[in-house]
């Protein structure tokens, strides 16, 4: 299905074919290294007041070191739930999540999370203290070490002047920068980001995307990034996992490593954008037909 779709897009054709996971498995190509994060057939369910909702069904994917791995899908496809599963806030009903070969059991500081909400910073701590706090409690650092490390990352996100400010004095974009600095200062095995820029205005969001890419260029961290914006996925990610809605199932894994902010509006960018758009849009039509029956 993916291959035939891709045939209509000459620019992307070669890449999608060669990087398609099923093709890779079927062929003799063995990935060069062990994946950092392995999600195997994970089904996640949560209870509401009177329903048991299946958020994702049999989702599998592998993330390698220094990946900018995007979970993309319409709202209700369980992408945030999947991220919570990886973070350890939810236990999979089925399947396994392994980090470096060890199964994930509960939340931990080696998988730092950046949330969408601005209230993720502790209001009773200054910017610097917010970044230091997990270093001391979760990272086992001394105060002096933590201060150095924290200031290092506060500088990296450009908030040196605001190190002693409290979160309520900061703008939304600055708060998200602190959250990113806090997560990165822990130097986690993998950084989990749950639509971190969704609540920002368009101009700030674009700047934050640029800054994140710059930071990645500096530090080469691994990030698992949830978004519902195709554009954001193309800009940030090097590999995009497309999920179908309700319950989330894998529809495709695509490469977008050579697309960045500079390629917005370009032919290749538009082609892949439209391709993903069609993929997601097709589902919506099916859903309506199902309802009619």
């Amino acid at each position: 299905m993916i291959v035939t779709e891709a045939d209509r897009l000459p620019a992307m054709n070669m890449e999608i074919k060669s990087q398609d996971k099923t093709t890779a498995k079927a062929g003799s190509q063995i990935p060069p290294e062990r994946p950092l994060l392995q999600v195997k057939d994970v089904t996640l369910q949560y209870k509401t007041k009177d329903h048991l909702v299946t958020a994702t069904y049999c989702v599998s994917f592998d993330t390698y070191a220094a990946d900018r791995f995007i979970l993309l899908g319409p709202s209700g496809c369980g992408k945030s739930t999947l991220l919570k599963g990886v973070a350890g806030f939810m236990k999979p009903a089925n399947g396994q999540i392994e980090l470096n070969g060890k199964p994930v059991r509960g939340p931990g500081p080696e998988r730092m999370m950046v949330f969408q909400e601005f209230d993720q910073l502790l209001p009773w701590k200054t910017v610097k203290q917010n970044v230091m706090f997990p270093l001391i409690t979760g990272g086992g650092m001394s105060r002096a070490e933590a201060t150095d490390q924290a200031m290092d990352y506060v500088n990296k996100v450009g908030l040196t002047k605001f190190a002693d400010a409290y979160p309520h004095m900061l703008s939304g974009g600055m708060k998200q920068r602190v959250a990113i600095a806090r997560a990165m200062a822990m130097e986690p095995a993998i950084l989990l980001m749950d639509e971190p820029f969704a609540a920002l205005d368009a101009l700030t969001r674009r700047r934050m995307q640029e800054e994140l890419l710059q930071l990645w260029d500096d530090v080469r961290f691994t990030v698992l990034f949830v978004t519902h914006s195709i554009e954001e996925a193309l800009i940030i990610g090097n590999r995009i996992l497309v999920l179908s809605p309700h319950p989330g199932q894998v529809k495709a894994e695509l490469n977008s490593g050579d697309l960045g902010i500079g390629s917005i509006g370009g032919e290749q960018f538009q082609a892949l954008h439209n391709h993903i758009h069609e993929m997601l849009f097709a589902d919506r039509v099916e859903e309506i037909e199902d309802d009619d029956r």
Partner: peptide, 20 residues
């Protein structure tokens, strides 16, 4: 969100109550 943050740091039990 704040609860999840605290647990993300690996805080539990009394520490979690005191610090978060």
């Amino acid at each position: 969100t704040m609860r999840m943050c605290g647990r993300n740091y690996g805080l539990r039990g009394l520490f979690y109550v005191m610090r978060i």
